[in-house]
Amino acid sequence: MADLATATRNAALTTRGGFAEVVLTPAPAASRLSLRAGADALPGLSAALGVTLPTRPKTSALSGKRHALWLGPDEWLLIDEGEGDLMAAAASSGTLHSSVDVSHRNVAVIVSGPGAEVAINSGCPQDLSLPIFPVGACSRTILGKVEIVLSRIAEDTFRVECWRSFSPYVFGMLSEGAADAGH
């Protein structure tokens, strides 16, 4: 006689209390700058901002509470989690550049735990293994159907930046991925 296979059914809200493998935390408020500049402006801007703007793809720099994330050959996202005034710092550099305060355009979700990679990969096509996406790596990419800026801040911790109005979708998407990471 054939064995019977029985599907297990998950109740609708079983994962609302959190996940064993992944912790999702909304990041505290931060100031953010969208920065565009040519190569000749970089030394001046780096000095004024107090963080060396990275010039290699997929890399970032950290100085105190200030992060500089490479997004493109002439584009960076600056994140200051302290009290610093990024706009004033850039303006004082005396260089030709474009800076836009996007502090309130973005919000971030911190994804941490042994299942963080799996949770993000549920909607993001990048290779997040440590040799390819090491601590400090960052990239603009996609999660499901929205654009995000992803950075790895520790071996098992990522920062997912997204536009504010997309954040419920991003958080929901990561929650689904986090629920799957335990299986």
Binding site: P57, G72, P73, T141
Partner: peptide, 18 residues
Amino acid sequence: MLLIYCPYCEEERSELEF
């Protein structure tokens, strides 16, 4: 999934980013 080499990022990425 189709992978495309971006000459600026210097690596292959998913077609979804392009």
